[in-house]
Design a protein around this nucleic acid. Structure first.
Lengths: 254, 254
DNA sequence: ATCTATTTGTACGTATGTATT
DNA sequence: AAATACATACGTACAAATAGA
């Protein structure tokens, strides 16, 4: 059942493949197709739109680049509707910020507002497995780092702690934004060695915050969770120093 | 100057066009190309990668779908690096949330945390033109609506007020997230007639909040701006009622 | 394990737009 | 107005991958 869309609509400006991609997208929405559903085969689309193979394929690539479909070869193969993955969405959004001058301070302005809210909303909602997962992560930086490499790994892990909290949230928007922030900071740590020069006091306080947070989450003490996270963010914020002006730029992930 | 990347790297899983797109992307980063810079011509890329035209073109479509390049025909034409636009980034991110069950309540949980912060950070930083723009927007809903259509337009405008504030921010991340939220709510209003059934008291309070906010922003009173926005959000939040459970879904914009 | 059918993936040559000079 | 330089579109042929007999 090929899409019932006219080949060339009023938006004459756009390229043919872009128009086709758009038509297929609307068709998917109209039909209420869900992940796993199959799109018409390449030959079918060629016949239906009356266009060349290359044109149809380019359209498919557009949809694929957006993470909306995935193709498989072979019998029973074809192109299938695909749920845009979290990772894909983060990567695409990173492209946008690549061209922006964003500072660590900018990121923390958002973190300070959102992370306490996340912590509060998570209190009392986590399963034993999820709490255990958090403790696993904390264990990675339970001891002071012995090398620069280990210090970096610990820094990544402490960011992953926040990423895990984000994943546990039932609020897709809050979850995504905090997860994206974690990726931003994590990428910058990996690609640019931009992590706090070792500071024993800061490391100790961070560890303590994370442990107290887990306790508050386990006990379902929403107010305490919020307060702990708030203090955690403020501490990190005040210790950022000159790094806050540092722009994070220079990578186009995928 | 063709990219100095090997045609087929270790990631054998990905399709050829995807690999080429990735190679070109890294090359752009390495070369430090900026928006407006030209990529090698199609024939050059074909020669360099030793691949067929179609393959190269599909790669270009991938980059174009991500908003990273734009092509022009004619002499002096070609494919050019392009800054990912705000609109494109929002559309791509919308694709992600299309598959999520997000409620109005979820959106407001984030709004309540971010909007007051935005308001506070904007106090005293706005130009006369920007303040005038805000007042222009407020004028649209200065009088009670006369029709359902006008009511919708006013609702969109009051959302645009927040969108304008977001655009005025110098924090790209905060700006984008709030702008994206505005788009989400705005789209849902247009596509689903999902706006508050008319409530004169609520309309009046919203108008009042916006006006007082402009005054606080003009006077540079950061604390007042934050407090006003906070109260504004809380009021809207408490008046949401049963709508907060309503999922916003059903559109794949571009 | 081999063949076979199905469906996407790649290659290449040619023709058609489109905008600049 | 015409030539030029570039992307865009078409059509066919063949290659690769995968599931099933």
């Amino acid at each position: 059942m090929p899409p019932a869309i006219t080949p060339s609509k009023t938006d004459a400006k756009r390229s043919r493949p872009a128009q086709v991609a758009e038509a297929i997208k609307s068709w998917v929405v109209e039909q209420g197709l869900t992940p796993g559903d199959r799109l018409p085969s390449e030959p079918d689309l060629i016949a239906h739109f009356g266009m060349a193979k290359g044109t149809i394929r380019e359209a498919m690539r557009i949809l694929e680049a957006q993470g909306l479909v995935k193709s498989r070869t072979g019998p029973g193969g074809g192109t299938f509707v695909h749920e845009v993955s979290r990772e894909r969405a983060k990567a695409l959004l990173s492209n946008y910020f690549y061209f922006k001058d964003m500072t660590i301070g900018d990121v923390y302005q958002v973190r300070r507002a959102l992370e306490p809210e996340l912590a509060a909303s998570l209190a009392g909602t986590l399963s034993q497995e999820q709490l255990a997962r958090l403790e696993e992560i904390v264990a990675i930086y339970a001891e002071p780092p012995q090398s620069a490499e280990q210090e970096r790994d610990q820094h990544i892990a402490s960011l992953a702690f926040h990423g895990a909290l984000a994943e546990f949230s039932r609020n897709p928007l809050l979850s995504f934004v905090i997860g994206f922030i974690e990726k931003l900071l994590s990428d910058i740590t990996v690609y640019r060695q931009l992590y706090t020069p070792h500071n024993l006091a800061l490391w100790e306080s961070g560890l303590d915050y994370h442990r107290r947070l887990i306790a508050a989450l386990r006990e379902g003490d929403s107010g305490a969770a919020r307060a702990i996270m708030k203090a955690h963010m403020e501490t990190a914020w005040t210790h950022m120093g000159d790094q806050e002006a540092k722009a994070l730029r220079g990578f186009l992930p995928e």
